[in-house]
Simulated assay, not measured.
Amino acid sequence: MDDRTLVIANGRVCTPFETLDKGMVVVREGRIAFVAPFNRRRLPEGAKVIDASGKIVLPGFVDVHVHGARGYDVMDGTYDAIDRISRFLARTGVTAFLPTTVSAPQERMLASARAVRESTERGVGGARPLGLHMEGPYINPERRGAQNVEHIRPPSIEEVQEVLRACGDRLRMVTLAPEMSGAMALIGFLKERGIIPSMGHTNATFREAMAGFQKGVRHAAHVFNAMRGFHHREPGALGAILIRDDVTVELIADWVHVHPVSIRLLLRLKGSDRVVLITDSIRAAGMPDGTYELGGLEVIVRDGICRLKTGSLAGSTLTLNKAVGNVTKRLGLPLSESVKMATVNPARLLEIDDRKGSLEPGKDADIVVADRDMNISMTIVQGRIAFSS
């Protein structure tokens, strides 16, 4: 048997640019060799064949906003935490992700940055960390959500430079409030270095938000949540986000953070090409109801819903396979559209769509096998089986 060649055969293949009712995905040395209708005569001699009959074969999901899972948090600041999170994510169809911080003292931010660097250099057992997403501490305390107000502070280029050194230049995204003093200078600094400036936890007016976009912001964290909402006389940050065709938005599709009608409106205004499904998961994901910690704050989880004592939502226990299933079933979207929001769109946002986000020749063999309810039976990361039920 050729250990370097793997074939996923007989499943419904969604690339997601095309769908093959009975297709085959051939993998060689960690990359996709070709995708085609199933033909036994085209099976490479000696290849390992995985029968996906009755299943759906998809590109691996990419989650750009993950705080934790299975009792671990990115802010634990250890390689072990990132590795354990990555292994859980693989069980949910995620093959790549951005470990995401919360507002914290600089020492803890640096510890998390070093852990992300170590995890990318050593490798992990599940989904691949693609770099660091800093959510906070440069946000507006008025829209802090579940961020610890004690650690929110003005934007600092010097602090970000320290984080860059600690993570080995693996900082991929910074979520901030553009209306805060010093934010515009930081946005310019990030843009010059190819780091995504993201708007979130913001009380920006329409004019302030538009100024942020003009400076370089091109993405918005968990749309509708922790931001100034829409008013017909002051459209606010939300109005600015919705009207810009060049801005992508994150969506938590758990039916708790955003009402289905709001999601329908979002898709009509932005189109599915500019919506990125995320989980915003915390350490309670994959765990029973109970009391957990996020950024030094107590989080109470009941029926899988995470809240502070104040009642504010505090991240989620959502998994990305469930998010894809939710928008497919509840909203009636075609599977290809739902899958795109968890694969192609985040890959384009991160400018890695030349190697991730779709099942195409030459790209990384990041592949998910699922049933019609989006229960994951197998996850393949760069040609290696990272999870199998």
Rank of each mutant, 00 (worst) to 15 (best):
A9E: 01
T78V: 08
P288R: 05
V276I: 15
D73T: 09
L313V: 12
S198P: 03
K55N: 04
G136D: 08
L318T: 06
E45W: 04
M341S: 03
V369F: 13
T291M: 03
K48H: 07
T101N: 08
S377G: 14
R144A: 14
R330H: 07
P129V: 09
R114F: 03
S316I: 06
R41Q: 14
R348K: 15
I300Q: 12
R41S: 15
R172T: 01
V94A: 02
M134E: 01
A209V: 14
H133E: 07
I82Q: 04
D80G: 07
G23E: 10
I241E: 03
E150C: 03
A253T: 05
I241Q: 13
T19Q: 15
M75P: 13
T19L: 00
L43I: 14
R264C: 11
L266A: 14
Y72C: 12
M199I: 14
A177I: 09
Q382K: 15
V149H: 10
T205F: 14
N375Y: 08
L190D: 03
I252S: 03
T19F: 00
E45P: 13
I56Y: 12
A323I: 02
L238K: 11
S53Y: 01
V327N: 03
G239M: 05
G383R: 05
A285I: 04
P44W: 10
D373I: 00
T319D: 10
A323W: 10
M199G: 01
D3C: 05
G271T: 07
D73A: 07
T379D: 00
G286Q: 06
T78E: 04
R41H: 05
E337D: 14
G200H: 04
L20N: 06
I380V: 15
D373Q: 10
P105L: 02
L318E: 03
N225R: 15
D273Q: 12
A220T: 08
K215R: 15
S316A: 05
V381C: 14
E142W: 07
A285H: 04
A90K: 07
T379I: 08
N140C: 12
E250K: 12
S316D: 05
F34D: 04
G332Q: 09
L171V: 10
K356D: 01
A52N: 12
G93L: 02
R41C: 05
E234M: 06
G271F: 02
G168I: 13
R153Y: 11
A240E: 10
I352Y: 07
V258N: 05
D289P: 13
